[in-house]
Design a protein around this nucleic acid. Sequence first.
DNA 1: TAGACGTGGCT
DNA 2: TAGCCAAGTCT
Length: 394
Amino acid sequence: MTGRGLPVKVSDNTLYFLSFFGERMPDFHPVAQTLLDWFAQNMRPLPWRADYSPYHVWISEVMLQQTQMERGVEYFRRWIAALPDPPAVATAHEDEVLKLWEGLGYYSRARNLIKAARVMVRDHHGRVPDDEAALRALPGIGPYTARAIASLAFGHDLAVVDANVERVFSRLFDVDTPVRETATKRRIADLAQQLLPPGRARDYNQAVMEFGALVCRKNPDCGHCPLAAHCEARRLGIVAHRPVPGKQADIQHVDVATGVVRRGGLLFIQRRPEDGVWGGLWEFPGGTVEPGEIPEQTIVREYMEELEWAVAPTRRIATIRHGYTRFRVTLHCFELEFLHGDAENPPLHEATQCRWIPLADLGRYALPAGHRKLADMLSAAEGGEGEGEGERKK
DNA sequence: TAGACGTGGCT
DNA sequence: TAGCCAAGTCT
């Protein structure tokens, strides 16, 4: 592979070659070396690759959980500009943090960043801790992220396993058991760790993931693959069947009704409970259309159940389709007339706070994606102020 | 351990 | 259009 002398020993992950001067020079497993070379030529420029500061690596890794890299970049820049270090996160208001996260999904990640930052301030001098165990103990940091931070930011020789790594090694070594199973995960973790070139964990881990994202994709680009000669799945002609998938949760279709109440030029929003879906985000009240109901009936029932308000739908604003986790949602949106109830201090049965706000202020609040679309339609209808994805906080 | 937890892009 | 999927974690 290297053309550099004779292999004299295979030890752990390292092949030793004799140099021209007779010294033992470390070289790496051909697969690892190929990945390192490929990465050096093909890595995408990313903001957190500028200096690999532990704080930047932590934020980027959490942002990228279950998220495509391109989508994370702009969120990352905005986050770092607003909250430059762990103490800033520790003292930030949750509403500000959720607004920075709006649209990324899995909002417990954002809430956990605050919790973890507070632990860093309390126990780690306001810094990201540098060992795997301490990282693993922080909220929102699991086995992947702990090893990613330890290797990328601190240079520890720890291999990471994410969906890319599972796909790449499943194909290279023809792993024929479902990747969801614990035993399979352990086998892939062992393979990744065995191939890790000592001292090169930062580049190696990113190389495998980047290679999985750009070449060894779900629909792989085997024609341009530098590892084709090493790939067992390719030799067997079963690349499309690796990795072996687990059971898929089936998609459920649901109809949801929501409605906007206006009163004296203000509109009503409420804040969702911390636990559960969209925890801590703001929304227009509403809920699932039950069997036998039409959406107009649902929204009347929901306002009575959630706020003990009587309302009447006056206009259908829009029908918005979006998805979340395993649901496909059709969101029926209504303009509502407030009939009676305690407008100023309603009992909150499905919320922790509520507010009457001007339409122009809607952009300051973190809303679920479906409600953000509705909010933007309302803003656009009223002359375009606060249009787009909502104004960002200055 | 399996299910909950979001979203937008791609096929 | 509908299904699949992405630098996972928590319970």
